[in-house]
Design a protein around this nucleic acid. Structure first.
Lengths: 127, 127
DNA sequence: ACATCTCTACGAATGCCTTCGTATAGTTTC
DNA sequence: GAAACTATACGAAGGCATTCGTAGAGATGT
């Protein structure tokens, strides 16, 4: 198995479009990205990403359709783990704390965290 | 002012040593990093990092002493913001949730999060 | 003084990322 | 069927990251 590398910036930008729009053609991706992506640049990136296994390509039609190989969720988890390892001594908890301190957190997110915390405590008591 | 770029992997590895050990010579950094860093490689990196403003160099002695220009905290915050922007639509809260889901969180970290949450709610009620 | 050790500086090689231009082939329109 | 359009493939350039070798200045020990 190949060691998993994290997506580069340009690759991530493309993945974001694919996650938001679902399977897309080169043109659809390029247009969504606006001036940031000349058509052939996006095409080249998608070809490279296909080689890396970051996206899957449907070649049944002449105009190929690309989709993200891994879910947004899974990719986010990978990126978080990676950052935790590189800059937080492997501690996801400390990373989370920095994230909470770094920006305003919406009420909804606050509720989710409260819920998560309650879940954790429930497990603790249950054990 | 130059736009702030995030430290590369190799740069971050060196910064970790400087944060842990405090101001250090090239040799001290290289030895701490073990076989990962041939002496001149570390030297070159530190020279480049000096140019970028990532580290400060004390040249008063023949053997230069390097220290991190920014605190570990501040750098972590920058990296978290950066990742939030690139992969979480700018939402630090969602990043935090993924971090909490990604790895086991220690009891101490759990306590810190509980504390943070209480603080948030206190602010809300106080307002 | 000489050999030896340590330090910095510099250059160059390698490889990846990103971008874009051009070639080529299939499709549509008149 | 010719022209115009749209698609993929490919190559190459430019830049940055990373690594290491070598040169040369300064210190040290005998």
């Amino acid at each position: 198995m190949a060691a998993r590398r994290r997506p580069t910036d340009a690759e991530l930008a493309i993945l974001r479009v694919l996650w938001a729009q679902g399977p897309s053609t080169v043109r659809e991706v390029a247009e969504e990205m606006g001036r940031e992506g000349a058509y052939t640049t996006v095409l080249k990136l998608l070809q490279i990403m296909t080689g890396k296994g970051l996206v899957r390509r449907d070649e049944s039609a002449r105009t190929h359709v690309y989709r993200a190989a891994r879910s947004e969720r899974a990719t986010q988890r990978q990126l978080v783990r990676d950052l935790a390892d590189r800059a937080f001594g492997g501690s996801a908890g400390r990373l989370a704390m920095q994230a909470l301190a770094a920006r305003k957190v919406s009420p909804q997110e606050l509720a989710e965290i409260r819920e998560w915390l309650a879940e954790q405590e429930g497990q603790r008591e249950g054990a």
